[in-house]
């Protein structure tokens, strides 16, 4: 492909699909700057790979690249945290031992928690949930986003992050324990 044609394509991609790709990234990374980076990286990679055949839609092809870029960013986010974080978590409020007594009974029994029926309350509920994700330790939030938002299979999470299956499930468990507790505190009492 000639340089001019390539440039034209890239500009079209940005104009036609940029906002779509940005929303796709923002929904998974939750950070506008990171989402912008992901879109930029995707377009740069698209230029380099030069493999677009035109038999699939450009959007589908770009989204495929974006998915990998999102995982790269999430992996970076997790790796940049010191490994000791996992150990430090034992002392933080997401430690499992804070939730159970020595014989494994709940210290605070989980309560009924339902999605409210009215639209306004649903909005509030989702915004509280979003705030609770922000309060998780960064590493836990990133692996939680990878699994439950980006829906990467556990097996691939382990591969991407180079951690054991046990490590992965402990982190996911802690993230979920922290989230539900935070939701209970902030939603039921609101």
């Amino acid at each position: 492909m000639s340089e001019n044609l390539m440039n034209k394509n890239v500009n079209d991609w940005l104009n036609d699909h940029g906002d779509y790709l940005y929303r796709f990234a923002l929904a998974r990374l939750r950070d506008p700057h990171q989402a912008e980076d992901a879109v930029q990286e995707t377009l740069l990679a698209a230029i380099k790979s030069n493999s677009f055949e035109g038999d699939s839609s450009a959007r589908t092809w770009l989204t495929g690249i974006l998915k990998h870029k999102i995982i790269d960013l999430q992996r970076k986010q997790i790796r940049e945290q010191p490994l000791s974080d996992l150990i430090d978590l034992d002392a933080s409020d997401t430690s499992m031992d804070d939730f159970f007594d020595k014989s494994g009974h709940w210290l605070d029994k989980p309560q009924t928690l339902d999605m409210p029926e009215n639209a306004l309350e649903q909005k509030q509920f989702l915004s509280i949930l979003s705030g609770c994700i922000d309060k998780l330790p960064a590493k836990l939030a990133a692996i939680f986003m990878m699994r439950d938002v980006h829906e990467v299979e556990n097996e691939n999470i382990c591969k991407e992050l180079d951690i054991t299956a046990t490590n992965a499930w402990v982190m996911l468990y802690r993230a979920r324990m922290g989230l539900r507790k935070c939701l209970e505190i902030n939603w039921i009492t609101s």
Partner: peptide
Amino acid sequence: NFNRQLRLIKSSI
């Protein structure tokens, strides 16, 4: 309740 909470979180996400 815990089971329902986790599933609610997952569907809300």
